[in-house]
Write a protein that binds this DNA or RNA. Structure first.
Length: 159
DNA sequence: GCCAACGTTGGC
DNA sequence: GCCAACGTTGGC
């Protein structure tokens, strides 16, 4: 059993297929409803100040899909978003070190999947959400993606 | 509100 | 380059 860096798990998707991610936000600061209200314009995912999270964003491609997770309040996956702009300098950063992607809302989770649900599902036990609670931008494997979509009442083929 | 986990900073 | 101190995140 070899240990692999977290990022390597996300890059296994086949060429041409989107990669999958999970983005956290405190709904107090910026909620799923806030992103939906932005419509097609989407929103730059600013404020990330963690190198691993930043590197995950730099690895994103346009069209990649992500779960939108509400941290602190709710503690559940509430929607699906899509990367609409590659990583670019974070306008909220003066140092030039930090970047952000833009995301748009794609679909509600008909049944939000809670952190408790995730922790109670053995197939999801390797998710960063469980193993690295503080990482705010995380890769999700295709298997985890399908599992979570089904748990949330979504058909992953229709996204 | 507390506190564990963990990432970052800065002194040496 | 180490590591103690500090700050922040986020679950509980």
């Amino acid at each position: 059993m070899s240990k692999k860096p977290t990022l390597a798990r996300a890059t296994k998707s086949k060429a041409g297929e989107p990669a999958y991610w999970l983005l956290k936000s405190e709904p107090d600061a910026f909620s799923w409803d806030d992103l939906k209200a932005k419509g097609k314009a989407g929103e730059p995912w600013t404020g990330v100040r963690n190198f691993l999270a930043r590197n995950n964003m730099k690895a994103m491609k346009i069209g990649d899909l992500g779960f939108f997770y509400h941290s602190n309040i709710g503690k559940e996956i509430v929607g699906i978003c899509k990367v609409s702009a590659l990583a670019h300098p974070d306008p909220s950063d003066d140092t030039g070190k930090w970047e952000c992607v833009d995301v748009v809302a794609v679909a509600d989770m008909p049944k939000p999947v809670t952190l408790v649900d995730v922790k109670g599902t053995p197939a999801l036990s390797r998710m960063s959400l469980v193993t690295s609670a503080r990482l705010s931008v995380q890769p999700v494997t295709p298997e985890e993606w399908r599992t979570l979509c089904k748990m949330g009442g979504l058909d992953p083929r229709k996204l």
